[in-house]
Design a binder for these strands. Structure first.
Lengths: 341, 341
DNA sequence: CTGAATTGCTAATCCGTATTACTCCTGCCG
DNA sequence: CGGCAGGAGTAATACGGATTAGCAATTCAG
């Protein structure tokens, strides 16, 4: 009890047990191969450790080992936001589960400052190195940050597919939006639809681009797409109907809801007059008038596998660094055969 | 680029800039008082740092300083659970907000193993020391852990009031359930009620004990309390009615809902025949048939202030270590004047 | 009964950074 | 010209624990 009780070091233990600091370390790490400690000495040391409640300082350990059992989580939005909460929690739940299983703690990089409305990993005093590796979460991740992470050979895994950064592959565990969207189009076609429309940016975030890509693959290159250039729901509906589409595939659920209201306002019934397919789970909390037909993103599983992949990378065994998981179709009630002409 | 690119040290920077490691450190910490570095040398070092993207290893720093800008969060349930999610997120949101403001990262102790259905802080290889201090969250926190934390003089703050552990005061930011509950009883009395009943364990967790204490203070020592010894909602209702109570104060919202259903099954209307007051927000997701009258817990604010208090403690300025925040009354629709006899 | 092997433990070193003490150099004053 | 002030930078050390090399004592083989 020199100055800070509880701030015990191995030297303190050594002194109390009448041995050297080395011996304490050896007893703690219990390595019969490295050195032999007499059973009674070992017991004496262990007794002191038990009595004092000593625990090794993980930081000091980490200076010698390379791993600290800490995984970083970097989110490009607040981790516990009010909006979009429901969307992100499943990812985090998966991440937490997996971290718990592998005995790692999670470090949330809350200290990252916000610049231009976005958090940045790389800032003046970035703490990335505290963690052994990092999971990245967010709709859009600046390519500059990704390429720098790759260049520095920092171990990380993105949740969600990412384009190559500077020509270098980015490790990720994503959802196969291309296949999932194409599958939805095929289902609509199977139920009689022939003309399709897409609502969503179709660019920017990879997730949006992938959905459009899947749509184009199944619906054709000339099927109409309505993005931000048409902000008003009524105008969007107009475009869709003008194109003769009977099934609309919507990136954001909020857009689907707005479109639904516009359709109702025009006296159209859903799905009898117009089928609406939601391409994923809501990213913002919306009051949905229907259970939309579409698919759901394996968010928890994505989080899980991202951490699993990361730990594999950290242990030097990562054959595959990119994974796409399948989305699960949701029956819903907004897909019906098209109206007869 | 010797072996691990991106794994730069000050020594590497020093070599590249043709100076000593000490100089690099001095430039980085920019302390004109400690040593004088020629502007051109400083610039040369800074240029190398910029070019290489070097960032100091926070862990090594922490070995010398006492603060690492990392706050631990220990939850006695999973942080991102499916159940009780809605209850805990506001706390975490407050914690995150406050951590972000003070430039700290959050370390979630996901590695803590579960023993006897509860996570334990103190286990074989506890990582507590990685963090400068710790916020504890959970309905019940084992007194043994608390007293050990206090004994070790580890800086921590509980979210939620805690009893003294081993006669030592536990730092916390809690909600004043005693006052909030008493206030609800007074309101019921003001609207004409004379006989009250309490549903809830009334013991175990401090939060439950406090609610009962508030109830007793306002309703009297002999007002009936129904706990786990009467598991069936119908039986509970029976007890309450037998006692002639016209207003019931319920700890857990799920109990309130069950009680409501039991009342309906008996042909009683709420609140005309029986007033039901909810003593706080739902801790488990329930389908509530009413917006219950009662109060709401300042969860986000509790999280915020817990972190603020912790950072104050870490900087050696913590005049008060226990705080109780007021709960906000909720109007709701389940309190009405008692039925006329 | 000597040399080698084994046992049981410790001194020394390292990890990456911050800090203290010290050295070297230049210029200035008396 | 000696000494001293101050500028510019570096060597040395500390932090707490893991590891390596090595030392002293004992045991064993020949």
């Amino acid at each position: 009890m020199s100055q800070a009780p509880g701030r015990l070091t191995q030297r303190d233990i050594a002194r109390l047990a009448g041995v050297s600091q080395t011996t304490v370390s050896l007893v703690l790490n219990n390595r019969p191969d490295a050195a032999r400690i007499a059973p009674e000495t070992r017991e004496r040391v262990l007794r002191v450790i038990r009595e004092t409640g000593y625990a090794a300082d993980p930081l000091a350990r980490r200076m010698l080992k390379q791993l600290n059992q800490i995984l970083g989580v970097f989110t490009y939005e607040p981790v516990f936001p009010s909006t979009s909460a429901d969307f992100y929690y499943p990812f985090l739940r998966g991440i937490e589960e997996s971290a718990e299983e592998s005995g790692c703690d999670l470090l949330l990089f809350t200290s990252a400052p916000v610049q231009d409305g976005l958090r940045r990993i790389f800032h003046e005093n970035n703490r990335l190195r505290v963690a052994d590796g990092c999971v990245l979460l967010g709709r859009e991740i600046p390519a500059a940050e990704l390429s720098r992470l790759v260049a520095e050979e920092y171990p990380f895994v993105c949740v969600g597919r990412r384009d190559d950064a500077d020509g270098r592959a980015v490790p990720y565990v994503g959802a196969d939006y291309v296949a999932a969207t194409a599958e939805q189009v095929d289902r609509a076609r199977a139920s009689g639809h022939e003309r399709f429309a897409f609502v969503g940016p179709g660019a920017g975030a990879e997730s949006s681009a992938d959905r459009l890509a899947g749509f184009r693959r199944a619906a054709g290159e000339d099927a109409p797409q309505v993005g931000v250039e048409v902000p008003e729901p009524a105008d969007r509906l107009e475009r869709i109907l003008d194109a003769g589409a009977t099934a609309v595939f919507v990136d954001f659920l909020s857009d689907a809801v707005e479109l639904t209201h516009a359709a109702h306002a025009r006296g159209l019934r859903i799905p009898e007059d117009l089928s609406v397919i939601a391409l994923g789970d809501p990213t913002t909390p919306v009051e949905a008038p229907y259970a939309y037909t579409g698919f759901t993103i394996p968010r928890q599983e994505m989080g899980r596998q991202a951490v699993e992949l990361l730990t594999q990378m950290l242990h030097g065994q990562a054959p595959v660094t990119q994974r796409l998981l399948a989305c699960r179709p949701v029956q819903g009630g907004t897909l019906a055969p098209p109206p007869r002409r």
